[in-house]
Design a protein around this nucleic acid. Structure first.
Lengths: 206, 206
DNA sequence: CGTTAGTTTGAGGCAGATCAACTTTGGTGG
DNA sequence: CCACCAAAGTTGATCTGCCTCAAACTAACG
């Protein structure tokens, strides 16, 4: 959703392609570029020392990513991975500096986005402590599927996004299907009753 | 750490005082002001529907707070509470708009801080999933105590910061004291061995 | 000192992770 | 177009870290 705002000001950029599962940048690397998605889906993942993955953010068409580390002037705190074949427009940090300097209102809207993401992250953090895995999974199904209806999310991805496991995702989805709240199509699924998915009572979970 | 940067530009501001446990603003309120701490300690808490509290951020002398919602143009996603008696300098959003407009480099440094906070929040989120409560509590002891050595953190606060409970905090602290890693002084505690606290092996936890 | 908020300790329970075996899906190439 | 197979999903059994609850204890402050 940002590319349209920025693109008029870009003087130099390059295009890059990635295949599914290719890593675009690694946690710990120093940021040298900013990325815009022309097509495809990108996931931001943190991987712990013991190998446990957490799915932090999804980026889709016209989204920007890599900006957090650039703005914070820190190494990447997580790795970005192509979830589908991806085409990116890449611009250098220098180019971005130039653009931001000459367009304060653009910087302001990026700031605003980062501030919203911070709120989202903190609410998710709180949700891990005060919501059941069932509820988090239900909410993740809505979030992921509404945001990217055409992508077939794996149980592993849903698990890592919701702070759970593929097995628990399967179990919750089976219950939801039995209640006619979702419907499976092979590995994919469809949401039949959005509202019910977001307002589950305890008794709906069995 | 921000007040010094901003203060030369402030034309209108007011001072406000709060007692311990007073709420400065409520989750859901519309932000109308920005706050700078002259003295005292402020905590940002999220409270779930069922009453579970999560301790999101701490603010101390010369810190700014309330800026996230202002920048995101959203209602507050959490409540701020005075942890000690607090004196604040309060400026209106309009005043802040004026200052940010005429000082792009100031806006840039606030953006940078929010971007760092987003990284921190996401790493904490990942930590809830891949670290044991023991390790999170140990890390929280270091973070909270080093940041504000003179404040006596309650077990409840440490629990809510680390994503745990007062009981578990007590149990972990007892083990750490037995290992001469911390030392209790009444309800307060002192860190004797910082490095050991951050590099605990599994066998150190019993 | 008396009171209250905060802390400690123990016992018990459970949500959800883990492990393992089996089934299904959907892409691939013969 | 079908047969194959690796990857993904399902299912059941088991296990456990930490929460919850409850009761006794103690620090700190007026």
């Amino acid at each position: 959703m940002f590319y349209q705002l920025v693109s008029p000001y870009i003087e130099r950029s390059s295009e890059q392609n990635f295949k599914r599962n290719q890593i675009i940048y690694h946690e710990g690397d120093k940021p040298k570029s900013l990325y815009f998605i022309n097509s495809g889906l990108v996931g931001l993942f943190h991987i712990s020392a013991e190998g446990k993955e957490t799915f932090l953010r999804v980026f889709g068409k016209e989204d920007i990513f890599g900006h957090r580390s650039y703005l914070a002037e820190e190494p990447y705190h997580a790795s970005s991975v192509a979830l589908t074949p991806v085409t990116l427009t890449v611009i250098s940090s220098e180019e971005c500096n130039r653009i931001c300097h000459s367009n304060p209102e653009l910087l302001m809207s990026i700031t605003s986005m980062v501030a919203r993401d911070l709120g989202d992250a903190e609410l998710r953090l709180a949700g891990l402590l005060d919501k059941t895995a069932h509820r988090r999974i239900s909410e993740s199904l809505v979030y992921l599927k509404l945001k990217h209806p055409d992508y077939t999310w794996t149980r592993k991805e849903i698990g890592e996004y919701s702070g759970s496991t593929p097995e628990t995702v399967t179990r919750v989805m089976r219950i939801l299907e039995r209640k006619n709240i979702i419907k499976k199509h092979g590995r994919d699924f469809e949401i039949l009753n959005n509202d019910k998915l977001l307002s589950l009572k305890e008794e709906d979970l069995y």
